[in-house]
Design a protein around this nucleic acid. Structure first.
Lengths: 129, 129
DNA sequence: GTATCTGTTATAGTTATAGTATAACAGTTA
DNA sequence: TAACTGTTATACTATAACTATAACAGATAC
């Protein structure tokens, strides 16, 4: 579990944690069915409160990334992450709009923008970062 | 000034305001040099506090979208918005990474993702939304 | 059976952010 | 002089993030 948190960042710790685990899944560092640390052990590893870890786990569970079994522990969803549905695509578009609007204002062209996206895609699918 | 705020949203009002104005510039509803309402009039138009508007204006000023003249008022930057620099590109990449990581997890392919971006680009450059 | 491990729930406190409500100041303009 | 700019200051409420404990319920290992 290589978790990299920035305690100076204004981005909440639990959000950073959520993203790091999603990144791990995207990068295939975490495979379906694989176990994650318990809320207590991960919290003490990172040096944060167990509620902060729990909050991240709850969000990941809600979005289908992991499963939480009361007495067994936490595992990456063995059935894989639920595929993109209409709701997800709408949310994605909503999230992309501000980025693209600002890029247009800053004369950052569509081609450059798409190239950047491709670069990030490749970055994940290539393996380790 | 067509401003559309969602008071139920968890996204802060001043952030929504910032984005709406950036969108307006991207869509060329607002042209360089064009005047924006005063903090007081916009605040009373929308039905919010003048400090909330001021906070949005200050952020837009900091990022070069607008200029604020103490006794004249607020105008869209006559010199145009500063072009994308290295710092901006890095920030953009940082913002895109979570979206792309989750898309990969959800089996939302690179082609679909890029198509969505193109669609949004077209949406802005076509004119009104 | 007792101890230890799970996730879960509850309570309480601190800190920071968002938003509002007033009020006042310093210039500009009609 | 009056009405308009942005700006600054103070104060208050509400909420989110994070921490600190404590306890509960079920599973498992000795």
């Amino acid at each position: 579990m290589l978790i990299n948190l920035d305690f100076e960042s204004s981005e909440p710790i639990y959000q950073q944690l959520v993203f790091q685990i999603i990144e791990g899944i995207a990068r295939k560092d975490f495979r379906p069915g694989e176990a994650l640390p318990s809320v207590r052990s991960l919290a003490s590893d990172i040096g944060i409160n167990l509620h902060t870890v729990n909050k991240a786990y709850q969000q990941l569970k809600l979005e289908g990334f992991i499963q939480i079994h009361r007495q067994k522990g936490v595992v990456i969803n063995p059935d894989g992450v639920p595929k993109a549905d209409e709701r997800y695509k709408q949310q994605l578009e909503k999230n992309l709009r501000p980025l693209i609007a600002e890029s247009i204002c800053r004369d950052y062209g569509e081609e450059e923008f798409l190239l950047l996206c491709k670069m990030i895609y490749k970055n994940y699918q290539g393996g380790r970062t």
